[in-house]
Every structure is written in C-alpha cells, then in structure tokens.
C-alpha cells in the first residue's frame, strides 16, 4: 500500500518581506506542518505573529521565501500563475475578516463570480449560487447590494461564495473578527457544518471560544509554531 499523501504539507517554510531601508522582515521562520483531508485546524497567535502570511501561503496567494509547500503532494513552485488561479478557483475557498465582497454588486452576483471564472453557464451559476445562499440562510437577500447588508450577513455570503465551487479547503482569516458573539457563533456553526461534510477548514483567530470549534489548535508566535494540539 502506498503511503497516504497529505492534503497540505509545509516543510521549513519561511517568508521574508523586504523593507524600504534595504532590511527585511522575517514574518515566517521555518514552519513545518501537515494537514490531512477533513481536518478542522485553528491557528492562533498574537497580532503580527504571521498568521495571515501563513494562510496566504497555504492559499497560494503568496509564495514561501524558502522551504517547500506540497499541495496534494505536488510542489506549488511548479505551477504557473494561471494554474495557481485555477486551483484557488476550484480547490480553495477564502473568507477574509473584511473586504470580502464587491461593493455595489448584488449578493448573488458576488457568489456567482468564482463560477464565472470557471466558465460555468449563467443558468447553472444562478442555480448553484441560490443553493449556496440557502445553505447559509441568506437566500432572501440574493438581490440586495452587498453594501446594503449587515456584517454577519456579509460573512455568510462570503462563506456561500467560498463554498460554491465545492473546494476541498476552506481558509478563513478571522472571519468573525468584526462580529458580535452571537453572530460569531452562527457563522462558526456554518463553518462547522461544512467541515462535517468533509471540507478541510483552516481557521485563523485570536479568540479562544472561536478556536474551540476546531479539532486541532496551532499556536504561532513570531513566525514559529509553538504548540500544535489535537483534541
């Protein structure tokens, strides 16, 4: 039997940002991590510890300065920018803390957008977008402009959009960062449901009770993993 290939495998990944004065800032400092399919991982750490940088690299939005990132066993260095865009489109869903939606664009058009890039027909787009909106119970706002709905509703639309291509990985960077406790719980329950259905979830947060939704909690300090605890 062949050894099982992990979904995400990082080996001694570093990220160094060049600074204006010729110096550079080391945001990630040799991170190694394996995430298997179906996991629900929370990444915690103080502000500026490199959580977002970490997520951007896992989400193929950024590339490591050194080290290796194998996604489904394949080194992501080998992909062209169009191939990376295609993987982001079909295999990775993003939910950010803010600026998730195109403003002055309807909710449904926002959710349809990834499908447009995937070349899916308008008819199919509408149908699947409505299905996704229904799952997060926001289908009644489909025709509203995205700048005319509340913060909690925006995050639900963002989840619908992230899931509409049925990706295997959902990356959420402080998705409840701008929400009250009650709304945060609702959003987290939607994310938990997705994980139950098989989506691998990597969630960034600095709130303990949000991290509690996850089955594995990783703590980062100064660009390094300091604890990695499975429940």
């Amino acid at each position: 039997m062949a050894t099982k290939i992990p979904l995400i495998k990082l080996e001694k990944v570093t990220k160094r940002y060049p600074l204006a004065d010729g110096e550079s800032y080391q945001a990630l400092n040799g991170v190694s991590l394996i995430v298997e399919k179906g996991e629900f991982v929370a990444i915690m750490g103080p502000s500026g510890s490199g959580k977002s940088t970490f997520m951007h690299i896992m989400g193929l939005l950024d590339i490591p300065s050194t080290g290796k990132y194998l996604l489904k066993g394949k080194d992501v260095k080998s992909y062209t920018s169009d191939e990376l865009a295609d993987i982001r489109n079909k295999d990775i869903g993003f939910v950010f803390q803010s600026f998730n939606l195109l403003s002055r664009t309807t909710v449904i058009k926002n959710v349809e957008r990834p499908m447009m890039y995937a070349g899916i027909s308008q008819e199919e787009r509408t149908k699947r977008a409505m299905d996704a909106l229904r799952l997060v119970q926001i289908d009644n706002k489909a025709e509203n402009l995205s700048n005319h709905i509340s913060g909690g509703q925006i995050q639900r639309v963002a989840i619908a959009r992230a899931m509409v291509m049925e990706p295997s990985i959902l990356l959420a960077d402080e998705p409840t960062g701008n929400l009250d406790t009650k709304t945060s719980k609702e959003i987290m329950n939607h994310i938990k449901d997705l994980n139950k259905k098989g989506t691998t979830v990597i969630l960034i947060t600095h709130e303990e009770d949000i991290a509690d939704f996850a089955k594995r909690i990783i703590k980062i300090v100064d660009g390094k993993i300091v604890t990695d605890r499975k429940k």
């Binding site: 865009a85 295609d86 982001r88 489109n89 993003f94 600026f99 890039y117 291509m165």
Partner: peptide, 8 residues
Amino acid sequence: LLKAIGAK
C-alpha cells in the same frame, strides 16, 4: 479579492 477567488 478577484484573484483570490480565481480570476486569471
């Protein structure tokens, strides 16, 4: 954002 959701 568009690039994140798959725009080439």
